[in-house]
Computed example of a mutant assay.
Amino acid sequence: MDKTIILLLLYVDICIGFGFYMYLWRIKKLIGFHLGMNISIVMGGMIALIFGVLLILQFPFHFTLITVVSTLTGLVVGAMFGLLFDYQTFVTGLTNGIVVGLMSPMIGTIIEMPSVFVWCIHIFFAISLCTISISIKRS
Rank of each mutant, 00 (worst) to 15 (best):
K3G: 00
K3A: 02
T4K: 12
I5Q: 14
I5P: 14
I6H: 07
L7G: 11
L9M: 10
L10P: 03
Y11E: 15
D13L: 07
D13S: 11
I14L: 14
F18S: 08
F18N: 14
F18V: 13
F18P: 00
G19I: 08
Y21F: 10
Y21D: 03
M22W: 13
M22N: 09
L24H: 06
W25V: 14
W25S: 11
W25D: 10
I27R: 02
I27F: 04
K28W: 04
K28V: 08
K29W: 13
I31N: 03
F33L: 12
L35V: 00
N38Q: 15
N38S: 14
N38E: 13
N38K: 11
I39G: 00
S40P: 01
I41S: 13
M43W: 03
G45P: 13
M46D: 05
I47A: 11
A48Y: 03
L49W: 04
I50C: 09
I50Y: 07
G52D: 03
V53Q: 00
V53T: 03
L55P: 06
L55T: 01
I56C: 08
I56W: 09
L57S: 13
Q58I: 14
Q58A: 13
F59D: 00
H62S: 15
H62E: 13
H62T: 05
F63W: 12
L65K: 06
T67V: 12
T67K: 09
V69Q: 09
V69F: 13
T71V: 08
T71K: 11
T73I: 09
L75D: 01
A79L: 07
A79R: 08
A79S: 05
F81A: 04
L83R: 14
L83K: 12
L84W: 09
F85W: 08
F85A: 04
D86T: 00
D86V: 00
Q88S: 10
Q88N: 12
T89R: 05
F90I: 03
V91T: 11
V91A: 08
V91D: 11
G93W: 05
N96P: 05
G97T: 10
G97H: 06
I98Q: 01
I98C: 05
V99L: 14
G101C: 13
G101R: 12
L102H: 09
M103Q: 12
I107W: 10
I107V: 09
T109D: 09
I111S: 01
S115V: 01
S115P: 09
W119P: 04
W119V: 06
C120I: 07
I123H: 05
I123L: 02
F125S: 02
A126T: 00
I127P: 05
C130E: 15
S133T: 14
S133I: 05
I134N: 09
I134G: 11
I136P: 02
R138G: 15
S139R: 06
S139Q: 12
